[in-house]
Simulated scan of single mutants.
Amino acid sequence: MIPVCRVEDLPEGESVRIEIDGVTPVIAVFHAEGGYYALDDTCSHQDAALSDGWVEGCFVECPLHAALFDLRTGAPACLPARRPVRTHEVSVLDGMIHVRPAVREEAVA
């Protein structure tokens, strides 16, 4: 688990972007609907940071073309996005938000 920030440092409706290393994709952690959610930070439609998007309910709107993604599942809720973004496990321990990055699936040749 990777520590992200203290719960008081991530207000409802906001996000924080975390870079882990040069291999793991950048992750956006969101506080929405009283919970914490983590997604790959890059929109699956085009290269835009979801952490720069707008949170409404349990959805984030991509700042580039307004695609919506469900924070709980990573699934797109409207076009132009067609592919989901990967989700990551989030937990809160002693007032600190932690993320466990999902294992990256390698393409099979």
Rank of each mutant, 00 (worst) to 15 (best):
I2R: 13
I2K: 14
I2H: 15
P3H: 09
P3I: 09
V4L: 12
C5W: 00
C5E: 11
R6V: 01
E8Q: 12
D9H: 10
L10F: 01
P11T: 08
G13Q: 09
G13C: 10
E14Y: 12
E14R: 15
E14L: 05
V16F: 02
R17S: 14
R17Q: 11
I18F: 11
I20M: 13
D21K: 04
G22K: 12
T24N: 15
T24K: 03
T24W: 00
P25V: 06
P25S: 14
I27Y: 07
A28Y: 00
A28E: 08
V29W: 03
G35P: 01
Y36I: 09
A38Q: 02
L39K: 01
L39F: 07
T42N: 03
C43I: 01
C43R: 10
C43Q: 11
H45F: 08
H45P: 04
Q46E: 13
A48E: 12
L50Q: 03
S51G: 10
D52N: 10
G53Y: 05
V55N: 07
E56N: 02
C58R: 08
F59W: 00
F59R: 05
E61I: 01
P63R: 08
P63Q: 11
A66T: 06
D70N: 05
L71E: 05
T73E: 07
P76T: 03
A77C: 03
C78V: 04
P80F: 08
P80R: 00
P80I: 03
A81K: 03
R82E: 04
R83N: 12
R86N: 06
H88V: 10
E89F: 02
V92P: 01
V92S: 09
L93H: 14
L93T: 15
D94H: 07
D94W: 03
D94C: 08
D94A: 13
M96R: 13
I97R: 06
I97E: 12
H98Q: 11
V99D: 10
V99P: 15
P101E: 05
E106W: 12
E106Y: 08
V108K: 15
V108L: 15
A109E: 14
